[in-house]
């Protein structure tokens, strides 16, 4: 019986060694250690042995069983580890293959510029005012100190709907409307919007374009306040190192009127193609609100004063992003639009 046991052990160890995977090994386990296996049979058959041999034989069977079990467990651990390795190898991927694209669109570059300006002025306490694109002659011209017969309001330059109604030529009528609605109270607004002029479309002209204007009215608003405000704007939009300069100009709705240049953001003022070798770039027009404009809207120009400024987002976008033709903004070529996707700075 002992010899039989020894043979079983040898057989089992051989089969364990020969097992190539978890399943085969499990079969071995069942075959030799299972309830119906030969070792269990041997234990069951111990009853036939003389009583004095039973303990010795029992111990022997247990030793064999433990030995076989130990070897099997070790083999099992090895095979499992190999199985995992094999699976990982099988599952490995080419990480350089392209990812599943997340397709998003983006703002039109003009909206990008307008929102940047809006947000800057909102942070300084301004509100955003909007108004109709089809306007009364009164708000577009008369309320802005451009009486009938003024040379700047030629029919040839504007899209008239009737004698008294036209497509607004600037966003200034929103200022006039806001002043009328505020009935003499202080104002701090930014007015963005579409405007229209009777121009042939070419690289630098567009019959439809965008404007953004600002208006502040209050007690003792000074020209120095205008200059300070414009300087904050220039630094925020074009970089902390920007300097501004004001040059005298003329607009019927402001007095004094100025144009603002900024030091060139490309060359810093030494002269390049962007600033046409002058070191300065013209950005916007501004001035102190003309007393006639205040009075027409019911403001006492002796007590209140104000400043206004206006600029073209097209021009700013063209300067900032190097766009050479204004028509790009209205062609909606996806190859153009999609370039304004990423963040700046």
């Amino acid at each position: 019986m002992e010899a039989q046991l020894q043979q079983l052990k040898e057989e089992a160890l051989q089969k364990i060694e020969a097992s190539q995977n978890v399943k085969e090994l499990n079969d071995v386990r069942v075959a030799y250690l299972g309830k119906k296996g030969p070792i269990t049979d041997l234990l069951k058959g111990m009853g036939k042995l003389p009583a004095e041999e039973r303990p010795k034989m029992g111990a022997l069977v247990n030793v064999v069983r433990e030995e076989v079990t130990e070897v099997l467990e070790a083999r099992m651990a090895l095979l499992q580890e190999q199985a995992i390795q094999a699976q990982l190898e099988k599952e490995s991927i080419d990480v350089t293959l392209p990812g599943r694209p997340v397709k998003t669109g983006n703002h039109h570059p003009l909206t990008r510029v307008v929102e940047e300006i809006e947000d800057l002025f909102i942070s300084m306490g301004y509100e955003i005012a909007e108004g109709p694109e089809v306007e009364k002659d009164y708000y577009n011209f008369e309320a802005l100190n451009l009486p009938k017969g003024h040379p700047a309001r030629d029919m040839q330059d504007s899209f008239y709907i009737s004698e008294d109604i036209l497509l607004r030529t600037h966003t200034s009528p929103v200022q006039a409307r806001t002043m009328e609605a505020k009935e003499g109270k202080p104002i701090k607004i930014i007015c963005p919007g579409k405007v229209y002029r009777r121009d042939n479309d070419d690289a630098t002209h567009s019959h439809q374009f965008t404007q953004i204007e600002g208006l502040v009215i209050g007690e003792n608003i000074r020209m120095s306040d205008l200059k300070g405000t414009l300087s904050v704007f220039a630094k925020k939009m074009f970089g902390e190192d920007r300097e501004i300069r004001l040059r005298p100009s003329f607009f019927p709705f402001t007095e004094p009127s100025v144009e603002m240049d900024i030091s060139c953001f490309k060359c810093g003022g030494s002269g390049c193609n962007v600033c046409k070798k002058t070191g300065w770039i013209e950005i916007l027009g501004a001035g102190m609100v003309h007393p006639n404009v205040l009075e027409m809207a019911g403001y006492d120009s002796k007590k209140l004063s104000g400043f206004a400024f206006g600029m073209g987002p097209e021009r700013i976008a063209m300067l900032k992003y190097g766009v050479e033709d204004i028509r790009h903004f209205y062609t909606n070529d996806v190859r153009f639009l999609s370039q304004f996707h990423r963040t700046e700075v």
């Binding site: 942070s123 300084m124 509100e127 120095s224 004001l246 040059r247």
Partner: peptide
């Protein structure tokens, strides 16, 4: 115009914002 100082409007502080 270079001699004009730079200031900001002095007024009652009011929050700005979008409607």
């Amino acid at each position: 115009y270079d001699e004009i100082p730079m200031t900001l409007p002095v007024e009652e502080s009011k929050p700005g914002g979008l409607t």
